[in-house]
Amino acid sequence: MGAHADSLEHDLVEVHGQEEARRALEVAAAGGHHVLMTGPPGAGKTMLARCLPGIMPGLELAEALEVAQVRSLLGELPAGRPLDWVRPFRAPHHGVSMAGLIGGGAGLALPGEISRAHHGVLFLDELAEFQASVLQALRQPLESGRVAITRSGGSVVYPARFTLVAATNPCPCGWAGDGQRNCRCTPAVIDAYLRKLSGPLLDRIDLKVTVRRVPLGELASEPRGEGSALVRERVRAARQRQVERQGFLNAQLKPARLRQLASLEPASRRTLERWAEQKGLTARGFHRAWRVARTAADLDGSEQIAEAHILESLGYRLHDVAA
């Protein structure tokens, strides 16, 4: 289906080091999970985010048609080439308005950035800088994959099934936890900054990773990782397993189906329960970790969820630790 040209504009082969973030992106692409990357300026968060569409398999025909419909509504369908097989990548600025992100505008409500990112990636850089109300409005579409916009003239529903990649600095000055530069923020300021990020939105993000800056001098010696094409093959196989098993990606598994389709080995269950008890995990958090473990097992080609898969998924729960 000619989904990807031979060379991608943003290929993981260009990313030095950052093994944790690369793996998190692979899991995100495989299971449809959302990602948060925390790290100082210049750590390569944007580059990593831009690589995500390229490790997802190209759009299916039905998906490409939906993407084309959104573009058509916006009058942005390229003449002569209506169908695009590459997954959308949208990166709205943190100053974006409610209407710009969610949809709206005068007269008939037009699709916003989240619908332009349908079947693709929505990248929100500097997450803490977005208006709280705008982030709040993301909750419903993150759950349902659709957005309903009610205007005086009536209401419309647009598709908005996207993978969210969010990025943030660890503190206002950006250097907390960095080995090379000193952070100038007081503990109270860092606390307030992280509190801004916490809450309902963060609760819906399955994968949280720290991205560290690779010093310029070491850039050349840092090993390059695999290219996007290789990663994409593993992602494709893992997605295939999910579609054959349940018809959709793991991120959308409801708890009841999860129990049915993702049975835990006794050791896996014990480990998950131990963590939940130690960190005071909510039921929502418990199921999120379980879904990610299902994806890790699918990437392994394993029907059973082994303890290693649960442990990996818990490794992405950075914010349980801060509590």
Binding site: R22, R274, A308, L311, E312, G315, Y316
Partner: peptide, 14 residues
């Protein structure tokens, strides 16, 4: 593999 290291560190954390 980084996935394995993440898992083993999590076990040690537990």
């Amino acid at each position: 593999p980084v996935a394995e290291v993440i898992g083993r560190l999590t076990a040690l954390e537990l």
